[in-house]
Amino acid sequence: MACKNLYYVMQMMTYSWYMGKLQKHLPGVTFPGRWWDPVNTEEKKTFSIEQFLKHNMHRPVFVCIGLTEGDPSWKRSFSRWPWGVCEQLVPVKTPFDPEKWAHKTLELYNWSQPNDSFHPGSWERVANEEMWQARMKTAFFLFDLAENMEKEQQARLYELSYNLYCHIVDAQVDYPANWDKNLALAAEGLLRSGGRGHGLDSLLSRSIRHFSRYLQREPTDPQSKAIRSIITHLRKERDKLRDRQKG
């Protein structure tokens, strides 16, 4: 029986013997060539990632741990949407509903291994970090999307990203240091967009707190000077806001 969702190993798809065996077990999956090789596909009767995806649009397709830079053909016709440690590849014209996607991906995680619990340099540590960072992928995706939007749409995405970051960070005691930085940036982005009903003092304080916490945890960050400057600016803005409220 063909699998409902398709997960594929790109490196293995470069071998003709693997393709032959794979096709026997996945009768519902179309491989539009003898193996994956994006160079001169017609001449060699091979296929690119884009061709593979176009022949399998009848099912959800996911990619995990990134896509090879050697074949960027998929970028012409597909986008990547975050799905835990993986990403779903969808046609570029597919309408994206940020609220629906945020809700759909919020409860994907049941990873219980504590953060920072393996020896530095070990493969277990790398895998554990990958799982922890996956919790933030949708929030990060929405923030990045907001950066290229205009006004109301931008504010909407900043707010959604901020709410997700708060939900995730507030639920943890120990978490990766970059979460503090990301949450601080999300709060600052929402602040720049007018707050969308969130208290300005609350957003300023949240951004200050998490930027400061990040620097405590990562004092050697190359951007530490710029972050300190932002903290100083945010504190001044908060003082001005509180002075106006008193007056």
Rank of each mutant, 00 (worst) to 15 (best):
K45R: 03
I230R: 12
S207G: 05
T68H: 15
R228H: 13
P176K: 00
Q11V: 10
R244D: 02
E159K: 09
D239F: 06
R80D: 08
Y15C: 12
H167L: 07
Q23V: 07
Y8R: 04
T138C: 14
N115F: 02
W179I: 04
C64K: 02
W81Y: 10
C86I: 04
A2Y: 14
T94R: 09
A139W: 14
T220P: 03
E150V: 06
C3Q: 08
Y109S: 07
K246S: 07
P60N: 09
L234N: 11
V90Q: 08
R244K: 04
R196V: 04
K4E: 07
L22S: 13
F141Y: 15
W123I: 03
Q133E: 05
G247E: 10
L53V: 04
T46S: 07
H210Q: 06
Q216G: 02
G194C: 08
C166I: 13
P95I: 07
F211D: 10
S212G: 08
V61R: 00
A146F: 06
W74Y: 07
V169W: 05
S117E: 00
L160N: 10
R196I: 02
R242N: 09
A155L: 05
N163Y: 08
E42V: 13
E188M: 12
D37W: 11
E150H: 04
R228A: 09
N128P: 08
L53N: 09
K75D: 06
E42N: 08
V9A: 14
V173K: 12
T220A: 11
M10K: 08
M149C: 15
K4I: 01
L22P: 10
L204M: 03
N110R: 05
H55K: 12
L26V: 06
E124G: 01
P72R: 14
Y175H: 11
Y158W: 15
L241D: 03
K151T: 10
P120C: 00
P95N: 07
Q11C: 12
F47P: 14
L22I: 15
D243R: 05
